[in-house]
Design a binder for these strands. Structure first.
Lengths: 195, 195
DNA sequence: TCTGGGCGATAAATAAAATGAACAATACAA
DNA sequence: TTGTATTGTTCATTTTATTTATCGCCCAGA
């Protein structure tokens, strides 16, 4: 096998950005290297070296460092060094995803790499997500604002009224229906976002 | 300072079970230490030592090892079981998290290992999350149902009215305030859940 | 202008992890 | 039985990470 002589660190794959991640995370929390070092029980030098990607920290030391925030290992690796984007949305800026019958407005459509799908929904009288049950990996929750919503989850059915709420795993087949003669208004959130 | 002589590995916190995790993962895949080592491009000795928790692997080498399956760092640290739970919540079943001034009701409080924090909030006139800005890892979104809500995110401030919405990263310092004389009703979602 | 303190980076010394070459224990075939 | 793999482990050595002690820089305050 013809090996190429490489600079240290070239093998890095996902851990390539450990330094950048840590630096960004520290900036977000407004801590200096020394302050973080003190909280984490390591030296500022170690943090300096890690942030420059001049070393690949051991699980032990990275765990210690992250505990200084505190942030878990999972959160750390899930974190995407991101930046600026749209924050506020006027009612007509919410992306309309109407399928003809009901009104569905997506919050944060402009946001790249969203971790949730938040919707402002309006079911017309007798509006329905359809006969065939929905199945997706993830979780969904919502609050009924106005009117009534019949929710079927697995073999459970319930009509929720204004002020009531739900939270379930979307792997279970489910369906939403407005059984009343009045429009039903709902705000829901789901993760991970299916769109 | 009176140090206690400790066995190596006593400092371990969350990384304490790295060895067990790896061993279990390898068993699941039916690989020998040497076979995994070959795929991962490390030595079998390293894997042996890691599985015995006699060393704390560097991010570099653990990444290499996990690539042999392949399994991501996140998946590795996420390995856990799950179960069933409550789906529907009456209005008075939403867990009240009032801090005196404003009404905050948590959807899905009973659900273990929730990935979101969905709230039905009611800000009294001039209700406020306080002077000191909130900073947390994650994302938050919401829809204004009734009244007005002034939201400060970083150095941006905006008053949102009924039907308007927001979506932003909670690492950016932020604050919520009801500037009006009317109660403000909001449904919000955040991930990961802070409680 | 000087001083002191905090900042991040660095060099040399030390501690720890990864390698390479063994080892004993097991299993299985000749 | 013997021989030959394969398993996981151990140890000496090499390589890498972390600490200790500094450096130069910038800035607030005397």
């Amino acid at each position: 096998m013809n090996e190429i002589t490489i600079e240290r660190g070239e093998t890095e794959q996902m851990s390539a950005s450990v330094g950048k991640r840590l630096k960004a995370l520290r900036a977000m929390h407004g801590l200096s290297q020394r302050e973080l070092a003190r909280r984490a029980g390591v030296t500022n030098s170690a943090i300096s070296m890690i942030e420059q990607d001049r070393v690949s920290p051991s699980i032990d030391s990275l765990t210690k460092v992250l505990a200084g925030f505190p942030v878990t290992m999972i959160e750390f690796f899930s974190m995407e060094p991101e930046q600026e984007e749209k924050i506020f949305y006027a009612e007509d800026e919410l992306v309309e995803m109407s399928d003809g019958t009901m009104s569905v407005r997506l919050v944060g459509a402009a946001k790249k790499d969203r971790k949730m799908r938040v919707l402002h929904e309006k079911y017309p009288p007798h509006g329905d997500t359809g006969e065939k049950m929905i199945v997706q990996e993830g979780e969904e929750a919502g609050v009924i604002i106005r009117g009534q919503l019949e929710i079927t989850v697995g073999n459970e059915i319930k009509v929720l009224n204004a002020g009531e709420a739900y939270y379930f795993n979307t792997e279970i087949p489910h369906r939403f229906r407005n059984p009343g003669d009045e429009e039903c208004e709902v705000v829901s959130a789901a993760t991970p976002p299916s769109f």
